[in-house]
Design a protein around this nucleic acid. Structure first.
Length: 277
DNA sequence: TCACCGCCCAAGCCTCCATT
DNA sequence: AATGGAGGCTTGGGCGGTGA
């Protein structure tokens, strides 16, 4: 048992899967009883936090490489993110290389001059490996870049617009124009009956399928508006909806049993939402 | 309310490419 | 030629939607 030192590269920081050379695998794990196709689960510890990982002995089936299996260490993406924050110098170099690769349509990023920092994998005891920086290039801007990486602002592959939870908020629209908005996706919507002074709030992955005239909960609704949730946060759609309902219920008389200030003659028609008492 | 279905994403696996 | 680096395809689990 010992330590394996690895230059930081895309494998380490992005895919979270690295090939361990045959002559070094025994530093991390006793593989004498391992057969091709098998894998061993282990824990990687970095900064006192533990991450799931495994070492697999993998086959190569192509004609050219048949019969030359190799060892691959993989770990969860949570660790890749922490490592990006640790090895800022290399991470930024890789991101920079990506940009020039895109421009020149180069395919692989293996340029030697970006591989400067080194991480150390040390076998502690059975199935526990500690991960620590061995060679690190610090700068005065590390704290700033840590923040930026933490907020995913450097995921250049992704759309910049993805920072906001709400990506679009409509004006109030008369029911007669409903058809023009049928195709809108991932929305929290507000239906209002201006005659009977009623409000109803809902959410939908597909506006046209949920919002129709004579809706049971608020049959007389005649105007509506909606907010489109950033696709990145669609998992939170219902939570955002309930937050809106809860907020409205605190101010408007409502049929959901929430105590309200009753600041308006309007009434909230929602009956059910997750109440955080 | 429950069971089923389809979709999406991450993990796993395979393979090609670059480097030595 | 050998082998590590890394992209792409496949798979499977989880989750939301839908219909009974």
């Amino acid at each position: 048992m010992g330590s394996y030192y690895k230059k930081i590269d895309k494998s380490v920081l992005e895919s979270g899967k690295i090939t361990i050379p045959d002559d070094e695998i025994n530093l991390l794990l006793d593989v004498s009883k391992m057969n091709v196709g098998e894998s061993i689960d282990l824990i990687l510890q970095f900064n006192n936090r533990k991450y799931k990982g495994k070492i697999a002995y993998k086959n190569r089936n192509s004609k050219k490489n048949k019969g030359k299996p190799y060892y691959q260490l993989t770990y969860e993406l949570g660790l890749t993110k922490e490592l990006k924050k640790e090895f800022i110098q290399t991470f930024l170099a890789i991101e920079t290389e990506k940009i020039s690769c895109n421009e020149s349509e180069k395919y692989h990023i293996t340029s030697d001059n970006i591989n400067r920092e080194v991480v150390k994998f040390q076998a502690k005891h059975e199935n526990l490996i500690t991960v620590s920086p061995f060679l690190k290039i610090g700068t005065e801007y590390d704290r700033l870049f840590q923040k930026i990486i933490e907020m995913n602002l450097l995921d250049l592959d992704k759309n910049d617009k993805e920072k906001d939870i709400i990506s679009y908020s409509s004006t109030w629209i008369p029911i007669s124009d409903l058809n023009k908005h049928k195709e809108v996706k991932n929305v929290v919507y507000y239906l209002v009956d201006t005659i009977n002074k009623e409000v109803y709030i809902g959410s939908a992955h597909n506006l046209g399928k949920r919002v129709k005239p004579n809706r049971e909960e608020i049959p007389g609704w005649n105007i509506f508006k909606y907010e489109v949730i950033n696709p990145k946060y669609t998992g939170l759609l219902v939570k955002i909806e309930y937050h809106s309902i809860r907020a409205f219920a605190s101010f408007l008389d409502n049929v959901g049993g929430e105590s309200s200030l009753g600041i308006s003659e309007y009434k909230l028609n929602n009956k059910v939402w997750s109440k955080c008492k």
